[in-house]
Each structure stands twice: as structure tokens, then as C-alpha cells.
Amino acid sequence: MSIVIVDHLVKRYGDFEAVKGISFQVDKGEVFGFLGPNGAGKSTTIKILCTLLTMTSGKALLNGFDVNREPLKVRQSIGLVFQDYSLDDRLTAEENLYFHGMLYNVPRALLKERMEQVLAMVELTERRKDLVRNFSGGMKRRLEIARGLLHHPQVLFLDEPTIGLDPQTRNAIWEHVLRLRDELGITVFMTTHYMEEAEHCDRIAIIDHGEIVALDAPKALKEDIGGDMVTVTTTNNPQLAEEIRQRYGIPVIEDGTVLRMEVEDGASFVPRLAVDFTGMITSVSVHEPTLDDVFLKTTGRAIRDELLDEKERFRQRRLGRRRGR
């Protein structure tokens, strides 16, 4: 059963088409990931599904409600964790939850019980009376996830939920998200930049320039690549890239300081390569395809570059804020 149905969704800003008629469906109870570089249309799509932005054309149903026609019902059906923090840091954890519960019309008798539940779930029970301004980034994120669940939404949207967090916190947040799916059967719709996180998703859609370029389970996407990935460093990348292409008839991608290529059987290819280009190759590694490789293949870019941009942007924003912008 599909809980999110998107049909030829288009968003245009003047002449620029940010989302170019994408269609997909998300099943109830699955963890669905949106993967793609900045400006690919991920956040735009999420904002449209959350009724924060209107679409130019197309159709989208969420929990059976039309995003255009029944925005209040759609909003009641979803929980949201935004890329930027959206807590009131002058209120306590509990007050933030209370505020949310009232806005979402959680019955008074249930509200207290639910607040305790979600606080326990994200392990913030002991800090419930503390002001949010004294929380760490990871605690804020956890509180936001708790808040997003307070009204028992059908779909939880997580827009870059782990950005700017350390690896331990990221893992902890993932544990929570997966447990939610298992225990409450909630559908999780998320965007991420981190490949290892995308691995947790049941299915991922890779989106680039406003179009979905691949959509499947991570395992299937990797299997699509077929063979093994070979990464080579050489004394002269451009020259060797050309020669390898001609000699073996395979595509070679120049990715920063390395050359990447996809071959059917790494174990037999590497010795041939070493013999054919003796003295020009400084290192070789063979690995099974990762989502990085899938991304590289479908978009022609490495996601690491995007990741760096993102970190930089995040850092600058925080600096700007500290200056009291």
C-alpha cells in the first residue's frame, strides 16, 4: 500500500525548472531515502509534500489526502524534522513538546502520556525540564524527532536529519529511526548526503537536476553496476584514462586524483592492467560497488564534493548566527 503517491510533479521558478515532472510512490512502513546533490530538487519536493510550497503542476497524495486541496489534513498526517533546528530554545524540552501537542490537537488526557513516551524513546526524560538552549546539537535533533512523533504521524519527514552531528550521535539517531519503523510501523521519508546512511533505507531515489535518475533498494542499485569497482592512481591521469578506455573499451571516470572504472571481474582485470601499464600505476584498489559508485555513475559526480560544500555551508551559517546576523 502506498502512503505517498507523487505523479508528474513539476515545480518551476520563472524559467528554471527545479523539479521536472517526477513520479514515485512510497510504501507504508518503509524507510525511503532521497539522495542527491545540492539544488537537485530534494528539499523542494519535500516542501511541496509538506504543503509548505505549492507545485506548478502534477499531483501528490499523502495518506490519501491531496496535498493541494487538503493541506491541513496532510499536515496532521506528517511529522517533520527540518534541516535547520526549529525548536524554541527559550522553552524547556517539555514545553516544546506541549506546544506541539496543542497545535496538533492531541487530546489533553493523552498528551502527558505521549510526552513521556517520546521523551523516553529519545532518552531525554531526565533533561525534560531543561531549557533547550543548553542542549547539544544531538540532543536538539533527538528532541525534534520526539516532537515530530508526538501526534503519531503516518509519515515522518527527515530533511538531512544528521547534518553537522558527530558519528556516534548519527548512529544513535539512526537506531531511533529504525526502531520507530519496526515498533510503530511508521513510514520514514528522508534526505541525506551520507552514503552510509542511505544504506539504511529500504529504497532510495537518486535525484539530480530535478529528475529521478535511479530508484531501487540500495542492494539492487549496487548490483546494477554489476562487477567490481577499480580505483587507480597513476603518474598521468588524463593520458592513462584515455589509453585504458581505448584498450579495454570501458568507461573511465576521472574523480579528483584517482581514476575509477567498472569491470566485470576485478581479480582478473588488475593483473592485466598492471602488466599493460607497468611503471605508470602507483596504486590499485578493488572493491565491491558502493552507493558512492552508484551515485557517481548516475550523476557523473562524486557525492563527497557535495558533502564538503554542505559542511562548509553549515559552518558558515553557524558563524553568521553567532555574529548576531
Partner: peptide, 17 residues
């Protein structure tokens, strides 16, 4: 301030007029 610190979004996506 609420817009700057993101809290306004929490209010604007709530299912309320």
C-alpha cells in the same frame, strides 16, 4: 527572531489556520 531561529516553520506547518 522565530523565522531566524527556525521556530516559525514549526508553527507554519502545524495543521491550524
Amino acid at each position: 527572531w522565530d523565522r531566524e531561529f527556525g521556530f516559525l516553520k514549526e508553527i507554519l506547518v502545524a495543521p491550524v489556520p
